[in-house]
Design a protein around this nucleic acid. Structure first.
Lengths: 193, 193
DNA sequence: CGTCTATTTGAATGTACTCAAAAGCGGTGG
DNA sequence: CCACCGCTTTTGAGTACATTCAAATAGACG
């Protein structure tokens, strides 16, 4: 059933009884995105937090020169959204679109607040989700500071082996912060060993 | 009095009555650090979250070549620590030491859990602190991807004008992810305009 | 098949680093 | 108060990493 994955995701951190999990899923809305379809555009208000049950999303910006930079990828079992926009009801900094046909479960801020009230354990749940995301980001900042593009690419391969298969090189280069041309050169160099 | 700053910091997000704030401060321990003294070393377990009431700390790593990379600075009114180590009781990834004589208020994990139990509002408080930190980091990742060293330096100057005055250039270069030599060249170039 | 986009390749350029040496600056002890 | 030491910052030359531009090739999709 559709809610299996998200309930497993929740169960990693908090225990729910049937009433609680029924209430939780009653607050979720399903949404389907075609490849290249936007979940969020820069400047819009991000009205939902989104749990991916199928497919792949990217969160990115476009800089002054029109170059895209990917802040994060999301695949099955990941939460994505523009947290700042969601929380403060201000225009989003990021674009989010689908790299594959994707299905998400969405929860609005109002529903999230209802959830916090009725099942306060979810405060803890979302705190933990956030903590993990925070720690992952901190490591990424550190990696970007410490490593060359080649090292970052090799790290990416081991850290996200699924993604390497699924997303085009162009997207990987936008995540690593290098040009597609240079990534292509790196790959050639690596193969020749 | 010593707890003014931290109580103001808390009051930004949640309201406490006297009993609650008394209980909160009763869980805090004060610690003084001399310049260059360590609050945490890589490999140690981070046993406290730390609120800076005076001074300046840096959270950093040392890469394979012995080069330091600063993940964040902390000054008055900031919370610092190695969150992952603190939460999971595993060895810390980061060093934290003092760039100036510094005073912090510390709370242990046990005391934090007591606090959560007795004053559940603090769950919300630390969630908000974390949210803000998360968002700031996300912007930093994006900036590191989108901007050249010169642009990042200029951004740093406007974002942390206090720090520019207080910390040596060497530390700023370690934060920006460039060599001190190159930062010196950038500064010369910028002055010559 | 044709069109559109992604990837590869090569040459020229720019950005940032290394190494080495000199100059500046702060603290300490005589 | 000055001299010296250690550390930071500056300067310059040579080098490595990564980008831009342009063109060719390969792949994906209707």
């Amino acid at each position: 059933m559709d809610f299996d994955l998200i309930l497993q995701n929740v169960a990693k951190h908090i225990q729910l009884d049937t009433t609680e999990s029924d209430f939780f899923v009653s607050l979720l809305q399903r949404r389907t995105l075609k490849r290249k379809e936007f979940l969020l555009k820069q400047g819009d208000i991000c009205k939902t937090e989104n749990f991916i049950i199928k497919g792949c999303l990217r969160t990115y910006t476009i800089d002054a020169n029109g170059v895209e930079h990917i802040v994060m990828f999301g695949i099955e079992d990941w939460w994505v959204g523009d947290l700042y926009s969601f929380l403060t009801h201000t225009p989003a900094h990021y674009f989010i679109d689908a790299l594959e046909d994707t299905e998400v479960l969405q929860i609005t801020k109002d529903n999230l607040n209802r959830l916090y009230e009725r099942v306060p354990k979810f405060e803890k749940f979302f705190r933990l989700i956030l903590q993990n995301a925070y720690i992952a980001q901190q490591h990424r900042i550190n990696q970007n500071l410490s490593f060359t593009a080649e090292q970052r690419y090799l790290k990416f391969l081991t850290q996200y082996p699924q993604l390497e298969q699924r997303v085009p090189q162009k997207q990987i280069s936008a995540f690593l912060g290098i040009t597609p041309v240079f990534l292509s050169m790196l790959r050639r160099k690596l193969v020749n060993r």
